[in-house]
């Protein structure tokens, strides 16, 4: 029986009169990286904590690999690695001892534990820091250690709450690569971040949440298309720009045509394939098209378009 690796089903979580999570539903498939975007206090962390079996929802349920986070937390925990937005490290232990402790806590023993430690330390590039006390680690190193802790038991699902927070550009790129590699190995990753460019590059799909409500779910393009069904196109025609303008105005899939010098700007209703058709037809019509560019919205544009900046 196939089931999504992560599923939020009509999830609600109220704190008094505050609706931290209000009827949120989405699914994440195996090997998928799902970005959870929203302003502070939007309900991202609460949703993630419910998935990590740290909190109970007021209504609804969350599932990891088909198991309810309310009724089968022990089964969920075996399949889940959670990296919260705080470090949660012990003093008086070194990196190896820290990871070894969590490996034991997840029931890994003997050769299996040694292999898990070796693999995790290698993957997170902590080999050289193995015997370094945790209190002497930089923020980036601690983030890597926490990622190592979350993946030490080889979970099928990883939930990462603001993993890139406070990291320098190099560490961010390394983290992004690690997450992509984890997804390539079949892990499902739910990741939240404020750095939208980072998410756009690593996520297969995103969910935008505000005031506890999920406003949009899908790939960046899908959300963009949903928000704005037409694309802005810019065409530079060598000679005959006026003719091209008239030709474009006559088309039903083109609107708002403006001409500045040789450059035509218009909005085109359709997807990328229809843009190819339009370009071909322009060339066949005899226009000397020197430049044809369509502008797609960035994740930041989509985020700004979808959210209203209301904080509860």
């Amino acid at each position: 029986m196939s089931h999504p690796m992560i599923e939020l089903r009509r999830l609600h979580r109220f704190f008094g009169t505050t609706r931290a999570v209000n009827d949120v539903s989405f699914e994440v498939q195996r090997g998928e990286v799902f970005g959870f975007i929203g302003p502070n206090g939007a309900g991202k962390t609460t949703s993630m904590r419910i998935l990590a079996t740290l909190e109970l929802p007021t209504y609804g349920d969350a599932f990891v690999d088909g198991f309810s986070c309310i009724n089968d937390p022990d089964r969920v925990r075996r399949r889940l690695g959670f990296m919260p937005d705080y470090f949660g490290t012990y003093t008086d232990v070194n990196c190896y001892e820290y990871l070894d402790f969590f490996a034991r806590s997840y029931g890994l023993a003997g050769r299996q534990r040694h292999q898990a430690l070796q693999h995790t330390m290698g993957f997170t590039k902590l080999d050289e820091l193995a015997h370094k006390p945790i209190r002497g680690l930089s923020k980036g190193m601690k983030q890597r250690l926490c990622l190592g802790r979350a993946m030490i038991h080889d979970p099928a699902v990883l939930i990462l709450d603001e993993p890139a927070n406070g990291l320098d550009p190099r560490a961010r790129i390394e983290l992004r690569e690690m997450i992509r590699e984890l997804a390539a190995n079949g892990k499902s990753v739910l990741v939240s971040s404020h750095i939208l460019t980072e998410l756009a590059e690593m996520c297969d799909r995103v969910g935008i949440i505000e005031r506890g409500q999920l406003l949009a779910v899908g790939t960046v393009e899908e959300i963009q298309h949903e928000q704005q069904p037409h694309r802005e196109v810019k065409v530079r025609v060598l000679g005959g720009a006026e003719g091209a303008r008239a030709w474009l105005v006559g088309r039903s899939d083109v609107n708002d045509v403006t001409l500045v010098g040789e450059e035509l700007k218009f909005s085109h209703q359709g997807d990328r394939d229809s843009e190819v058709v339009l370009l071909r037809e322009m060339i066949l019509a005899g226009f000397r098209v020197a430049e044809f560019a369509s502008h797609s919205q960035s994740l930041e544009d989509v985020f700004m378009a979808v959210t209203k900046g209301i904080v509860q």
Partner: peptide, 12 residues
Amino acid sequence: DGTFELLSITSL
């Protein structure tokens, strides 16, 4: 220190 939450989501 927030480590209890990390402990509680292990198999312990």
